[in-house]
């Protein structure tokens, strides 16, 4: 088992607590540390404090414009290297994904294997 320090951190931006919990359980099983940023929390602040290895972002959260936020994160030098995977119930988002320079896309409802695969691709757990 990897030690606490070497574990990679995944920031999950998701307002639906059950989905956030599901992602947390699955990714923790695969050796990731998971932080959840739900409704009302400041994503940018959390990115600054935790310096996550990867961000999973739901595009459709009340109060947070996922598209704008992704664009913002991708434009700042400190955060632009962090891979961002968009999660959405919309099936066809390739244009949006490209336009905001997101790294990947996971359509809802996703398979757990897909989730793990895509996270693994962008940061192999230590």
């Amino acid at each position: 088992m990897p030690t606490q320090k070497t574990k990679k951190l995944v920031l999950v931006v998701e307002d639906d607590s059950s989905i956030a919990e599901l992602i947390q359980i699955v990714l923790q099983k695969h050796g990731y540390k998971v932080k959840i940023c739900g409704q009302g929390l400041k994503v940018e602040e959390m990115v600054r404090t935790y310096q996550p290895t990867i961000i999973l972002m739901d595009l459709w959260i009340p109060g947070i414009d996922g598209v704008k936020l992704t664009k913002k994160l991708k434009s700042k030098t400190r955060t632009k290297t962090i891979p961002i995977i968009l999660i959405s119930a919309q099936n066809y988002l390739s244009k949006v994904v490209r336009s905001v320079k997101a790294d990947g896309f996971l359509p809802k409802p996703f398979d757990l294997d897909e989730l793990v695969k895509i996270v693994n691709k962008y940061c192999k757990p230590a």
Partner: peptide, 17 residues
């Protein structure tokens, strides 16, 4: 259909677990 997809994702995920 968006709203339906969120609970489906959860059910599907936990069923898989």
């Amino acid at each position: 259909s968006h709203e339906l997809k969120t609970p489906i994702t959860t059910i599907k995920g936990f069923a898989q677990l």
